[in-house]
């Protein structure tokens, strides 16, 4: 019973953020040792450059998707379809821009972006409908769109890779704002907005309550369905924005490969950040750390001269270590033994 006053050390040990933060630090240290100039930042034309900036920029789409995923996971859900949504969002925007009378016009880009995000919202609402209204298991409900969604993206692009040359559109993935890459700024703003919204309003409490016990929450007057639904819509919106970033970065839409397996990275980021897939307590900060760990890991593999083929093995190894450290049973073994048993049977 975590009643009462614990020492600072005790609380630190229990904090879910300590492990991921330590892991990130270790990774950064490894990089500094291997590449002495790793932390160096350069300013060129008022824009910030450097390995750390690259990590932030390349990690932004995954981090964003992980942000949406966190809220879905907190309500006991999971969204496998975000990768497909990434592909669809990019395909819609690029197909619209490429097909417009003036493909370089900023207005065209804006309309394309609005269309893509609008469609993403519809897809999120669809997932929410299946999960919240029909009561279908999240894994399978979103598997439907994961499977069909990439086909839809191919349908939109007619199976082609669609390249665009729109300056405004290219800004989203390649431009700079206030000296930072636009993608990083957008992701940071969205993280801050969600953190504020869940802390300053009761949304955080209601989401956690629905995640811990949906029935009890509903019977307490919480509009549990609405909250679950909102989670999927928001996750799809994040995926839509991420899809735009990704296609803008390469100024093309690749329905087949854009956002492929990004849902798995996002889920990993969420779990590494200390949010349990069984719902309930979640951590936005943890998710951010998780996403940064994954991206730093990828970068480390490259800078350390490890053959890129092996990077997946490293990723798997790190994931396994983090999970094992997080697993309650292992923690119990490391600290002090605890009674086996009394896992509450989930309905």
């Amino acid at each position: 019973m975590g009643t009462l006053r614990e020492s600072l050390g005790e609380r630190l040990r229990r904090s879910p953020l300590v492990l991921p933060a330590a892991a990130l630090l270790v990774l950064l240290l490894v990089n500094v040792v291997v590449t002495p100039g790793f932390l160096a930042l350069r300013v060129v034309d008022g824009h910030l450059f450097g390995s750390v900036v690259d990590i932030l920029k390349n990690g932004a789409p995954t981090a964003l998707i992980a942000l949406g995923m966190t809220l879905v996971v907190a309500t006991r859900g999971i969204d496998l379809s975000v990768g497909a949504t990434v592909a669809i969002a990019g395909s819609v925007a690029c197909t619209w821009i490429a097909g417009a009378s003036d493909p370089t016009d900023p207005g065209t880009a804006l309309v394309g972006i609005v269309l893509a995000l609008g469609l993403a919202l519809v897809l999120g609402a669809w997932n929410g409908l299946l999960v919240a209204a029909f009561g279908i298991q999240p894994i399978i409900a979103t598997l439907v769109l994961m499977t069909a969604g990439r086909g839809l993206a191919m349908l939109i692009t007619d199976g082609q890779i669609i390249t665009v040359a729109n300056p405004l559109f290219a800004e989203l993935g390649g431009g700079f704002l206030l000296g930072l890459p636009v993608a990083v700024v957008v992701a940071a703003v969205m993280f801050a907005a969600v953190a504020l919204l869940t802390r300053r309003t009761a949304l955080g409490l209601l989401i956690e309550s629905v995640g811990v016990n949906p029935t009890a929450s509903r019977l307490s007057g919480v509009r549990a369905r609405g909250i679950v639904w909102g989670g999927y819509v928001f996750a799809a919106l994040c995926a839509g924005v991420a899809g735009l970033m990704i296609s803008s970065n390469v100024t093309a839409a690749d329905a087949n490969n854009a956002g492929l397996w990004i849902e798995l990275d996002a889920i990993l980021a969420v779990v590494i950040g200390g949010t349990l897939l069984t719902g309930g307590r979640y951590s936005i900060g943890g998710t951010l750390l998780g996403a940064l760990i994954l991206q730093t890991l990828t970068t480390t593999v490259y800078t350390a001269g490890i053959p890129p083929e092996v990077s997946l093995v490293f990723k798997a190894a790190v994931i396994i270590v983090v999970f094992l450290l997080q697993a309650e049973k292992v923690r119990a073994l490391l600290h002090r033994r605890r009674p086996v048993g009394e896992r509450v049977a989930t309905p």
Binding site: L205, E208, S209, N213, T215, A216, L219, S220, R281, V344
Partner: peptide, 17 residues
């Protein structure tokens, strides 16, 4: 099953409704 939100604190449970 339908009342206790076990992983939340006493405070959060009491203010929930």
């Amino acid at each position: 099953g339908e009342g206790v939100v076990g992983d939340l604190t006493v405070r959060d449970n009491i203010v929930l409704a």
